[in-house]
Amino acid sequence: MNNKKIIGIICKDLDQELSAGEKAELDDYLASSPEVHQIYRQQALIKKHLDEGQASMIEVDFKKNILNKIAMEAYKQPQKKDNVRLVHGFLSRPVVKFGFTFFMGIFMGFLIFSFLKADFTGTSVQTNQMKGAFYDNESANNIITADVLQYDSPVATAIIKVRYSTTMVEITAELTSNEPVKCNFLFDYNNFAVLNIQNSNVNNQTTAMAAGNFIQINNMGENKFLIYLSNKNALQNNIDFKIMLNDSPIFQNSVQVNKD
């Protein structure tokens, strides 16, 4: 016998909510078990007294006291509130709220990340401790022409213009040859370093290469190069030029820079 189930059926019956099937089941229990019968009678008596509970309620009248209390609290009028609010403000829309929260979260994340990654050691590097050099158009200020070399022969012609400032040397080389010739620029790597070789007007049969202490142009046809060297110490130094045909020099000269 499932006691919980029987109690349920008895209570349902007393509440007059029993189905026909359950009623038959309850009748079986009542007929077969005096114990169930006793529970039923006891529950019925409890139900009867519970139902009378309302009748035994104490009468009260607090109306005056309550209204006085309300009056003492400055008779605050309850705030009016719309029953139904169909139109919501743009900012109060959930999508705006959540979107704002989401983006603020990302922003805060970035902010925290950048603070964590920032270098707060406070070490500042002096200008003279910096490595490397910065070249710009200011580097070519007060540029002075060192020399212009010219070579003219049936094999090749060359015009080499050398200018210098305190920081850099500019070489303009205009080479013309009907056969392949090599044009070498030789210098001391303690004094100069190659910054840039600019092909101003170069055909595809011509190449140029540079190393620590020389530049070599393998020339064929008519070409123009613009070469920049860094002027490391601004002391008097020479740059040697050599034009070679089949590895035999046909022109050789040198230009002195930093003359003053």
Binding site: I58, K63, I70, Q77
Partner: peptide, 26 residues
């Protein structure tokens, strides 16, 4: 009506529920 300023309506509500609520509280 109470929300719109009627205190007498609130008195009716008190009359309706004070007995039940007091007895439940008790």
């Amino acid at each position: 009506e109470v929300i719109h300023g009627s205190t007498s309506s609130f008195e009716v509500l008190i009359d309706r529920y004070q007995k039940t609520i007091f007895n439940m509280m008790l």
